[in-house]
Design a protein around this nucleic acid. Structure first.
Lengths: 353, 353
DNA sequence: TTGTAAGCGTTATCAA
DNA sequence: TTGATAACGCTTACAA
């Protein structure tokens, strides 16, 4: 295994084969129809023997097509992000695209402060976007940490952009996000199918898009089922355990038979409040969650919940950006705003009555 | 805001200022002592006005120092990985280093199969490592998804490597990982301080490094406390809920007052088994977990557990690689095998007796 | 079918 | 203090 110290370059391979570097380049780029089989084979053999690998730096600097797409993530640490990235990478691998990940660390830098203060995300974006543009990408997927409006996301270089989980203002770009309306709808339909008609709701923050849309879905389903929508039965709060705990307490004594918690964390708080009052979830009252985070199967009884289609969002977003890259003409038809439904995971926290 | 379509290059800036590109380059690279203040200011003004940003591709291709370190992650989807990456990026940002992330998707590609079949990880590594080397990195941090031995991790180009969470064979590289011995030790000491002396253990897989080391710590603490170590009281199983459930059932009737679960997931299974038998955790029996995953605060009662020092592992690994880069001489002193302790998070699942 | 040579956008050396 | 100019490792016309 002789191997030059440092990097073996295309020049070394050419020399070893006694050919010019363009010939090597042609073989490596699949243009071997321009090269005799004999030489092509020799070059390929030498490439593996010498352990040569093209410098992506040099290649991307020069080439017209870099076959590279960028993932700009608001924060990798948010539980929803890695599964989306997984879906993106899977799709890109299938299509022979390279992925580079940029992590803006919005939570890491400013905890939850950036959610309220838009200057923070703008500042970061103004750094991160040109940084990615300098990579000669062919397309960019923006991965939000939750559904919200993103401003100032604009490529001076005309880089195609696709949104995953979040939305750009004016919907300038194809968007792939949760179908929260159907999500809320499906939950109620399911609960009704189990005989429940007096249903409480432990929602997230009242002005949050996920909350608003799920409530819409709830109302739609209740209308269909001829159930009167009672605003007193929906409690808005936080997405976290404390919200569920406080909310469930507020719902106690309201004579509901089931409660729809808009996150698994909320459900965990609801469980706590219930147990504290000697009410056993899944037996005395039915509980359904949302997200299918690990916690849902960890609770006792295991929580029936809605699984977020995160990898699917990533997968479809990647397909869209690749389509945009390869057939730029189809841009208009691709100006999709795809809503991807969550799927029900039945466990043991809902019983028939 | 006049802005050239496409990329504005250093040449454009030079032209706009009526100077040569070398002068612009010098100003941009902090060598402004070689340039008159007047011109330097003008250049800086023009740079921001034109929205110029150096191409990292071209820069890294040419420059001797790229100020870039690579993160090679086994899988971003493993819960421990993003916090480690967060720690790395925080440290790198402070020191002015750039981070590029490569995700090998070991779980994404092969689920848990790669844990048993070493050829899979080797195959991936042989792809991913040269890919990263082609980026002209100055150093690499390998981020494992759990503690295990990594073979065939070797840079032909002499790239400095540091290990986070996992270990290279022969400990060729500085390593930053959990201090599991102290972890097991601390748990027992804590339980004893609460009056417990008959303690069960729900361990992970019996041949897993984390398991082995934590058991070592347990034994050390018990010895100190003059508690006889009873092997029958430690049940090996899986790291997941099912392991905890089965294990807890096996421990029932053994008259223990506390149980140490080696993961929060195991604890969730233990909770399930306990509730099923009318035993209330935190009241009738004390339970302590490990990992401080989100689930731990979601359980009822909230689980006392050990928080994994994940960001700290990343932070220290980054400091080490930067040190290795900037003072290559100190390599030998830096051949650390750092064990970073977990920290106890007291909640409501352990009571004094 | 193969080779020559001109870039890509930088940094670095050396002369002016 | 500034500016030519030669790399860096590759792709891609175009010529041979």
């Amino acid at each position: 295994m002789e191997q030059k110290a440092g990097n073996v370059t295309i020049r070394d391979v050419a020399k070893a084969c006694g050919v010019s570097i363009s010939t090597v380049s042609n073989v490596l780029n699949g243009k071997s129809n321009k090269v005799s089989d004999e030489i092509a084979d020799k070059i390929r053999a030498e490439v593996t023997r010498m352990g040569y690998r093209p410098s992506s730096l040099a290649r991307n600097l020069r080439a017209t097509s870099t076959k590279t797409i960028g993932v700009l993530a608001e924060d990798l640490i948010e539980f929803s992000t890695p599964p989306i990235v997984e879906g993106i990478m899977k799709s890109c691998e299938e299509k022979g695209y390279n992925v580079v990940i940029e992590n803006m660390r919005l939570f890491g830098r400013w905890q939850r402060e950036w959610l309220a203060d838009e200057t923070l995300i703008n500042k970061t974006l103004k750094e991160a976007l040109p940084k990615m543009e300098a990579l000669n990408l062919e397309g960019l997927i923006y991965v939000g940490s939750h559904e919200h409006l993103v401003h100032n996301l604009f490529s001076g270089r005309g880089l195609p952009i696709v949104m995953a989980y979040a939305v750009a203002v004016d919907k300038q770009y194809p968007t792939f996000r949760l179908d929260d309306i159907t999500g809320g709808y499906d939950v109620i339909k399911y609960l009704v199918s189990k005989g429940h008609r007096k249903i409480g709701v432990l929602a997230g923050e009242y002005d949050n898009t996920h909350t608003i849309n799920r409530v819409l879905g709830i109302q739609k389903a209740m209308l269909e089922e001829k159930i009167l929508f009672d605003p007193e039965l929906v409690i808005y709060g936080s997405w976290f355990k404390n919200g569920g705990y406080a909310g469930m307490k507020a719902l106690l004594g309201k004579d509901i038979t089931a409660v729809f918690c808009m996150s698994d964390l909320i459900a965990s708080g609801a469980y706590a409040a219930l147990y504290e009052n000697g009410i056993v979830p899944g037996r005395d009252i039915s509980v359904i969650g949302y997200d299918n985070q690990e916690i849902s199967s960890g609770l006792t009884p295991e929580l029936t919940t809605m699984a977020l289609p995160l990898p699917e969002i990533g997968f479809q977003a990647a397909k869209a950006i690749i389509n945009l890259i390869e057939k730029p003409g189809s841009a208009s038809t691709d100006m999709a705003d795809a809503r991807i439904p969550s799927v029900l995971i039945e466990r043991n926290s809902v019983r028939s009555i």
